[in-house]
Design a protein around this nucleic acid. Structure first.
Lengths: 327, 327
DNA sequence: CGGCCGTTTGAGCCACATCAACCGGGGTGG
DNA sequence: CCACCCCGGTTGATGTGGCTCAAACGGCCG
């Protein structure tokens, strides 16, 4: 029911007002499905509002020379912030500015090539097994997984992506994709067609660099997974995964409670265990007073001790820019 | 005893003659250590001979316009071959031209930034755990592994690299390296200091692209490892690894026999199994007439059946260039 | 109210780990 | 040149972590 022309002409504030209405409606609705739909529309509207504000600020900044590095040497200077707009900045936009270290104009170019925004519901397949890869997907909101299916019906999750991650930057390189990309929660994402991407990469080396970094960061996470899958006990694996996810969702600070997007069944597919055993391990962690998990809400009660038994060292998650290394 | 000024002034043929002498000497020597040293010197000399020929051919090609694409659009055209010199081309140089899809001048620039060639003996550490990464390492000959050590003394191999692979391109991105890079066989490698690399990347986007591809290809392999480590039986893992290594060493064609660079102990560290169990699995494969393994020489007797029980599909190993995908 | 999905709990079993001993070969020191 | 030792491979006995099968429970949705 939402159409794009509706969004194009609205101001950020109007959009946010609309989002608020949806949320209100959702609160009074009984049916879970419709509720989810309304909430997703709200997210959609909010995101567009954020983006409009961001775009405006960016243009203003460039035009008025608010960002001096940007003026001085064109494409070289990363720009971390655009001077706090009123609303909390979307995590996706945040990451674009910080981890990827893109300049403002690079970020805009990327966004413009990627529009329009797409959405999918929980369980939807963003990219099917053995499907041709025709575009780069960048996740803006929600959680998605990359899962490898086997002939015997079992499956193994090989990656979890959260807001800001490039979902298929590894798959871009090899033509065949043996994995299915599936949404674990309602998800919002950008879609950069390969042709536009090639243009961008050719014209803006910083974007190519950013994608390389993203690939390497994901490889580091994957390697960590491999290590603890092969060498650690079920308990440790589980604890480690909880730590990692919590850390990546940035809920590691604050009260350490967050919406946990996986069922025990899905957790089992991540950890390479059976659901029964996942359950038992969870019981143990609970009984030790380390975590609390019910109704999809995870609370980490004793972060220090959990990190300890998980042998969790978050350093591998903090990919840094090659420029910083070289000093 | 070999010094560089010795090599600089020799012709390729002279170098190869010297290499031949070393090999001869090695044949008559009793002590294993000295023998290994002589053989390594021979490889060193051979490699320099190959490289000199290659450099000469490249210069000639560019100057005389033998390679038309190269002339037409400067940096765009991959160059697969430089017209078969007499000796078999080094696998490293081969890969540089094909998989990485670099132009001739890019290849030369990379080589020049990387010299001089380095060597290390079996068991040597190329890059220690938590050591600062100060250069990109490209393997020219031999086999090296990337291994993660644990507090309890056990360890897990997270990557095997063969001639042509960039050994630490993933580690380039994050400052800390939790892995130790160790030579499994005598190894020859190039060393590109970070500073030179940065210059190269800035000046030659094709090299940056190549490194990105390399990173992605390694991530694909790693993912495959993760999948079979977590979901498959010990037998299948073992068989799969043998298939992969055989395939990557390009001995998958021909008689399917090759020098196997790993002891059972090391194999166990790769597969995440105990050495005893690796041994038993090997016994089974042997008794089924699938392989033959003694004195570090592996022969695959029934490739089809081995691939079958390993559920081996080599497609993930063939990373292709993004240009090819987009058609 | 009935069906379905996610969770929980129990019983039994198997793949793989661990411990321990032995063998054979090559390098080393006397 | 011989004796030794150390390392890689081989084999057996025994223990156990995690899987499988099976059944019950609770909540959500239709």
């Amino acid at each position: 029911m939402l159409r794009r022309f509706l969004i194009q002409d609205r101001s950020p504030d109007e959009l946010q007002q609309l989002a608020l209405e949806r949320r209100g409606l959702a609160g009074t609705t009984k049916s879970g499905k419709i509720k989810a739909l309304l909430l997703q529309e709200a997210i959609f509207l909010d995101f567009h509002a954020d983006m409009k504000r961001w775009m405006r600020a960016a243009e203003h900044g460039v035009a008025a020379g608010v960002s001096p590095e940007e003026k001085n040497h064109g494409t070289g200077a990363p720009c971390r912030d655009f001077g706090n707009s009123a609303s909390a900045l979307n995590p996706f936009l945040k990451k674009l500015g910080s981890r990827a270290a893109l300049t403002m104009s690079d970020q805009q170019a990327l966004l413009q090539a990627a529009l329009p925004l797409k959405q999918s519901l929980k369980g939807d397949i963003l990219l099917g097994q053995d499907e041709e890869v025709s575009s780069l997907l960048i996740l803006c909101d929600g959680v998605v997984q990359s899962v490898r299916g086997f002939s015997d019906g079992s499956q193994q999750v090989v990656g979890i992506f959260i807001a800001g991650d490039a979902v298929n930057c590894c798959e871009l390189v090899s033509r065949r994709v043996p994995n299915t990309i599936r949404a674990l929660t309602p998800a919002t994402y950008l879609n950069v067609p390969l042709a536009s991407l090639e243009e961008l990469l050719a014209a803006r080396p910083a974007i190519a660099r950013a994608l390389w970094l993203e690939t390497a960061a994901q490889a580091a996470i994957q390697q960590e997974w491999m290590v603890w899958i092969s060498r650690r006990s079920a308990q440790t694996r589980l604890a480690h995964f909880l730590c990692e996810l919590s850390y990546r969702l940035k809920n590691s600070n604050g009260n350490d409670a967050y919406e946990f997007p996986l069922s025990q069944r899905e957790l089992a597919d991540v950890l390479g265990l059976s659901t029964v055993h996942v359950n038992r391990c969870l019981q143990i962690l609970r009984s030790q007073g380390l975590i609390q998990l019910n109704r999809n809400r995870l609370t980490i009660l004793d972060k220090r001790r959990l990190h300890e038994i998980a042998e969790f060292d978050p350093e591998y998650l903090g990919a840094r820019h090659i420029h910083e290394q070289a000093q």
